[in-house]
């Protein structure tokens, strides 16, 4: 267990050491969210209606952008080979890296969400709900991102290929995440959407470490 937390701490240190790394993702997130009104128009009612969807799409895109860092540097400097030789199973190392990645990439997004919510004219209760669904849903997004990152880590010029693989797999998360926020006639469905979202995230958390570790092993041979 000590080794597990050591990997988590190592990855957090690496992400925060240079300083700008985790912050770039937040900046991208805010910018994508803030650029939407320029396309939609400054209609406050419309923005309030679309707000949760815009926030979710921005979070999805930001996490896609960040996932390439998950294994790439470890693959390039050889740490990944060392990790495969470690006493800790590769599945656990992957889980540790997932936790660290979530803490350094997804958590800052969630913290920055109120700022975006103000720009998009969401009220306080909506903002809290968005944050809540993001808390539940982003682990699933990070999980699928990890699978995509592991599959493409050995490809030198594979910049766009991982998002192409991951986006279709992110559809259920997006559907349940945004549906959990819906109001009006379909409000009754929002609680079941939340449960689906939570179940989906749990499922993703269970099988992702195995799939990711398998992909890494297959890539290293």
């Amino acid at each position: 267990m000590k080794a597990f937390w050591a990997v988590v701490l190592r990855d957090i240190k690496l992400a925060t050491r240079i300083g700008g790394d985790a912050l770039t993702v937040v900046l991208f997130y805010i910018m994508v969210g803030a650029i939407m009104p320029f396309a939609i128009g400054p209609d406050k009612v419309l923005l309030m209606k679309l707000g949760p969807a815009i926030i979710w799409i921005s979070a999805l895109l930001s996490l896609l952008l960040a996932l390439d860092r998950l294994f790439r540097t470890d693959h390039e400097d050889g740490s990944l080979i060392a990790m495969r030789q470690a006493h800790l199973p590769l599945e656990m190392i992957v889980l540790a890296k997932l936790i660290a990645h979530w803490l350094t990439n997804a958590a800052p997004l969630i913290i920055a969400t109120p700022l975006l919510a103000i720009l998009l004219n969401l009220d306080a209760s909506q903002t809290i709900k968005v944050i809540f669904t993001l808390l539940i849903g982003t682990p699933a997004l990070v999980c699928f991102g990890a699978i995509g990152a592991a599959v493409t880590v050995t490809i030198k010029r594979g910049g766009l290929i991982a998002p192409i693989l991951i986006l279709p797999l992110s559809i259920p998360t997006l559907i349940f995440g945004v549906s959990a926020l819906s109001t009006g006639a379909i409000e009754t469905a929002s609680s079941s959407a939340l449960l689906f979202l939570a179940g989906f995230t749990l499922l993703a958390l269970v099988f992702t470490p195995f799939a990711t570790a398998l992909a890494l092993k297959m890539g290293a041979e």
Partner: peptide
């Protein structure tokens, strides 16, 4: 190598396709 790596993502897709279908219908 591609064959084995793509096999992993194909199986991940196989687990996900029913979920995607369900979520889309829902």
């Amino acid at each position: 190598r591609a064959g084995r790596i793509i096999a992993v993502i194909t199986l991940v897709g196989a687990i996900n396709i029913p979920i995607i279908k369900f979520s889309v219908e829902w």
